[in-house]
Every structure is written in C-alpha cells, then in structure tokens.
Amino acid sequence: MDETGKELVLALYDYQEKSPREVTMKKGDILTLLNSTNKDWWKVEVNDRQGFVPAAYVKKL
C-alpha cells in the first residue's frame, strides 16, 4: 500500500495497450490497483492514466 492506503501492484512484464481501455506498463513499474474483481483484467492507474492490464502480468505488493 502507498501512503494513501491504496493497494499497489508490480508490473512483472512489459505490456503495450491494445485498446483505449488499457494502459501501457513496463516491467518494474509500480501501479495503483483500482479494481481486481475480474480474474483476468485488473484496473490500475499509472502515470495519471486509468485502464486495464492483464492480471497475470502484475503482482500485488
């Protein structure tokens, strides 16, 4: 969790967005987890953008 109590995830792999609903991340990025109710796609925030990334590409910290 960060200082505001939000849950964080670590990008395990690079991911290039394939639609406007997704976000690009690089391996090693720390992202804010917004929603993990879907087992396949998690909603995150990175670089002031919100979108989805494959759940298998990130790990909760």
Score class of each variant (00 low, 15 high):
12 L>I: 11
12 L>C: 08
19 S>M: 07
41 W>T: 02
37 T>C: 14
47 N>Q: 11
19 S>F: 06
35 N>G: 07
14 D>W: 03
48 D>S: 10
50 Q>S: 11
54 P>F: 03
25 M>Y: 02
40 D>G: 08
12 L>E: 04
28 G>H: 05
55 A>F: 02
52 F>K: 03
39 K>Q: 11
33 L>I: 05
48 D>G: 15
31 L>G: 12
23 V>C: 09
48 D>A: 10
57 Y>A: 13
52 F>S: 03
35 N>W: 06
17 E>A: 15
13 Y>T: 08
24 T>R: 05
39 K>C: 10
5 G>E: 13
9 V>G: 12
43 K>M: 15
26 K>H: 10
25 M>W: 01
38 N>Y: 08
50 Q>T: 11
5 G>S: 12
20 P>Q: 10
43 K>P: 01
10 L>D: 01
59 K>P: 02
58 V>C: 15
50 Q>V: 15
45 E>N: 06
23 V>G: 02
37 T>P: 03
20 P>C: 09
28 G>R: 02
2 D>I: 14
3 E>G: 13
25 M>S: 01
22 E>S: 05
57 Y>M: 13
59 K>C: 15
59 K>D: 08
33 L>R: 01
35 N>V: 08
34 L>F: 04
9 V>R: 02
24 T>N: 06
22 E>D: 05
2 D>H: 14
57 Y>S: 12
39 K>L: 10
3 E>V: 14
30 I>P: 01
55 A>M: 04
54 P>I: 02
13 Y>S: 08
26 K>I: 08
14 D>F: 04
18 K>P: 04
23 V>L: 14
50 Q>H: 09
49 R>M: 07
18 K>Q: 14
35 N>L: 09
56 A>F: 08
56 A>T: 11
3 E>F: 10
7 E>V: 15
1 M>P: 13
57 Y>R: 07
54 P>W: 03
9 V>A: 10
55 A>K: 06
37 T>Y: 09
53 V>C: 03
1 M>W: 13
6 K>R: 14
43 K>H: 10
41 W>C: 06
17 E>C: 12
50 Q>P: 05
44 V>L: 04
33 L>Y: 02
31 L>Q: 00
60 K>N: 07
2 D>C: 15
10 L>A: 06
10 L>F: 08
57 Y>W: 06
7 E>K: 09
30 I>H: 05
48 D>R: 09
51 G>C: 03
61 L>I: 14
11 A>S: 05
59 K>W: 08
23 V>K: 01
18 K>D: 06
50 Q>W: 07
40 D>E: 10
34 L>P: 01
35 N>F: 05
44 V>Q: 00
16 Q>K: 13
40 D>K: 12
15 Y>R: 02
36 S>G: 11
20 P>W: 08
33 L>Q: 00
34 L>G: 01
26 K>Q: 09
38 N>W: 06
9 V>K: 00
47 N>M: 12
5 G>M: 13
59 K>M: 14
12 L>V: 07
28 G>P: 00
37 T>A: 12
25 M>T: 03
52 F>V: 07
37 T>I: 09
60 K>A: 08
13 Y>R: 15
34 L>R: 04
4 T>P: 13
51 G>F: 09
18 K>W: 04
14 D>Y: 04
7 E>C: 15
33 L>H: 01
39 K>E: 11
26 K>D: 04
14 D>E: 05
35 N>R: 06
30 I>Q: 05
51 G>V: 04
6 K>L: 11
49 R>W: 04
7 E>F: 10
32 T>W: 13
22 E>T: 07
27 K>I: 06
28 G>S: 03
25 M>Q: 01
1 M>S: 13
41 W>Q: 02
51 G>K: 02
37 T>H: 10
40 D>N: 12
59 K>S: 10
8 L>Y: 15
27 K>Y: 05
22 E>N: 04
56 A>E: 13
48 D>V: 06
1 M>F: 13
34 L>S: 02
54 P>D: 02
46 V>L: 15
32 T>H: 09
21 R>P: 05
26 K>V: 09
46 V>R: 15
5 G>R: 14
34 L>K: 05
6 K>H: 12
22 E>K: 04
33 L>V: 06
53 V>P: 01
46 V>Y: 13
36 S>R: 07
37 T>V: 09
43 K>A: 08
17 E>M: 11
20 P>Y: 08
60 K>E: 07
35 N>D: 15
58 V>G: 01
47 N>Y: 13
57 Y>V: 07
8 L>S: 07
38 N>C: 10
24 T>P: 05
44 V>A: 01
2 D>T: 14
22 E>C: 06
23 V>T: 05
23 V>Y: 03
54 P>V: 01
59 K>A: 12
36 S>I: 06
24 T>A: 06
46 V>M: 15
1 M>V: 14
23 V>F: 11
27 K>Q: 09
55 A>T: 05
33 L>F: 03
44 V>N: 00
19 S>P: 04
42 W>K: 01
43 K>D: 03
54 P>E: 02
18 K>S: 10
11 A>C: 12
38 N>S: 09
39 K>T: 11
30 I>T: 06
55 A>I: 03
47 N>P: 11
37 T>K: 10
36 S>A: 13
53 V>A: 02
51 G>T: 02
41 W>P: 00
40 D>Q: 10
3 E>K: 14
31 L>M: 13
36 S>M: 09
57 Y>Q: 05
34 L>D: 01
8 L>F: 14
3 E>H: 14
52 F>M: 08
46 V>N: 15
11 A>G: 03
27 K>M: 08
60 K>R: 13
24 T>K: 04
42 W>D: 00
5 G>N: 13
33 L>N: 00
27 K>H: 06
49 R>P: 00
61 L>V: 11
49 R>G: 04
58 V>P: 02
2 D>L: 14
53 V>K: 00
25 M>P: 01
24 T>F: 04
15 Y>T: 00
22 E>Y: 05
31 L>A: 08
12 L>N: 04
17 E>D: 05
21 R>N: 14
41 W>D: 01
48 D>Y: 08
10 L>C: 09
9 V>E: 00
4 T>W: 13
9 V>N: 01
13 Y>A: 10
24 T>S: 15
45 E>R: 09
16 Q>R: 10
44 V>R: 00
58 V>M: 06
17 E>L: 07
37 T>F: 09
36 S>K: 07
23 V>I: 14
42 W>Y: 06
34 L>A: 03
15 Y>K: 01
41 W>S: 02
41 W>Y: 07
32 T>K: 12
36 S>N: 07
60 K>W: 07
4 T>M: 12
47 N>D: 15
42 W>P: 00
17 E>I: 06
38 N>D: 15
24 T>I: 03
38 N>R: 07
14 D>I: 02
50 Q>C: 11
34 L>Q: 03
61 L>A: 05
26 K>R: 12
40 D>F: 15
61 L>C: 12
31 L>F: 06
11 A>P: 01
42 W>M: 03
19 S>R: 09
1 M>L: 12
57 Y>I: 07
32 T>S: 08
29 D>F: 05
56 A>R: 14
44 V>S: 00
7 E>Q: 14
6 K>T: 13
35 N>H: 07
14 D>H: 05
4 T>C: 15
23 V>D: 00
19 S>G: 12
53 V>Y: 00
23 V>H: 03
46 V>G: 15
52 F>L: 08
27 K>A: 12
41 W>H: 02
43 K>R: 10
22 E>H: 06
7 E>G: 09
20 P>K: 10
3 E>Y: 10
13 Y>D: 07
12 L>D: 03
13 Y>K: 13
54 P>S: 01
52 F>R: 03
12 L>R: 04
15 Y>V: 01
32 T>G: 08
40 D>C: 13
21 R>E: 14
41 W>L: 03
55 A>D: 02
52 F>G: 01
43 K>G: 05
17 E>N: 07
49 R>A: 07
33 L>S: 02
15 Y>E: 01
47 N>G: 15
44 V>F: 01
7 E>T: 15
11 A>N: 01
10 L>K: 07
24 T>V: 03
23 V>P: 01
52 F>A: 03
37 T>E: 14
25 M>H: 01
2 D>S: 13
54 P>L: 04
16 Q>H: 13
32 T>I: 15
48 D>I: 06
55 A>G: 04
2 D>Y: 09
56 A>L: 09
30 I>G: 01
19 S>H: 11
45 E>F: 06
51 G>Q: 01
16 Q>L: 12
8 L>E: 07
39 K>W: 07
53 V>H: 00
20 P>D: 11
24 T>Q: 04
60 K>V: 12
10 L>T: 07
2 D>R: 11
48 D>L: 10
4 T>D: 13
45 E>P: 00
7 E>L: 10
2 D>A: 12
29 D>R: 02
47 N>V: 10
60 K>L: 14
